[in-house]
Amino acid sequence: MGRQRGFSLLEVLVAFAILGMSLGILYQAFGSSLRNLSVAGDYTRAMIIAESRLAEAANRMPLEPGSEAGEEESYHWRVRVTPWEDVEDLPKTFKLWLVEAEVSWGTGGHARSYRLSTLRLSDK
């Protein structure tokens, strides 16, 4: 009687176990990549909002101290203009202002924020 060729039940079970573990690892890797891509997209959107609000506030002349806030989609933004006092060599006819824009949002139970700031020179 000839010997039959093929896989035993144990070999098939081991192969399925290895396949299952490999697929689980690949699923985790792709899942974390998609989450990272989503977070990067959120930061990009927040950066665009912060840049536009900062440019809008910094180009107003004359600059005046104060703040304003608002909401755009699920992003909350706040712009603040304050006098900058750390300048000693600046001629008295000019004033330096700190303009800050902060955007905050929450995704997946995590609070995130992005902040930009610039200094602007204006007449007194």
Rank of each mutant, 00 (worst) to 15 (best):
M1I: 14
M1H: 13
G2P: 08
G2A: 11
G2T: 13
R3M: 07
Q4A: 15
S8D: 13
L10Q: 07
E11W: 14
V12K: 00
V12L: 05
V12Y: 00
V12M: 03
V14H: 04
V14K: 04
A15I: 11
F16S: 08
F16P: 01
I18Y: 03
L19N: 04
G20K: 09
M21G: 08
G24D: 02
I25K: 14
I25H: 14
L26K: 03
L26M: 10
Q28R: 09
A29K: 08
F30E: 10
G31W: 13
S33H: 08
N36M: 05
N36Q: 07
L37M: 14
L37K: 13
A40P: 01
A40N: 07
A40S: 11
T44K: 07
R45M: 13
R45N: 11
I48K: 12
I49Y: 03
A50D: 01
E51G: 12
E51I: 07
E51Y: 09
E51F: 07
S52L: 12
E56K: 10
E56I: 09
A58V: 01
R60D: 04
M61A: 13
P62V: 01
P62G: 02
L63E: 00
E64H: 06
E64S: 10
A69D: 10
G70R: 04
E73N: 15
S74R: 13
S74G: 12
H76N: 14
W77D: 06
V79I: 04
V81G: 05
V81T: 10
T82K: 09
P83D: 08
P83R: 11
E85W: 07
D86C: 09
E88V: 15
P91I: 11
P91A: 15
F94A: 11
K95E: 09
K95A: 09
K95D: 04
K95G: 06
V99D: 00
E100W: 01
V103P: 02
W105T: 05
G106M: 06
G109W: 04
S113K: 03
R115A: 04
S117A: 10
T118C: 00
R120P: 00
S122P: 03
S122G: 14
S122D: 14
S122Q: 14
K124M: 12
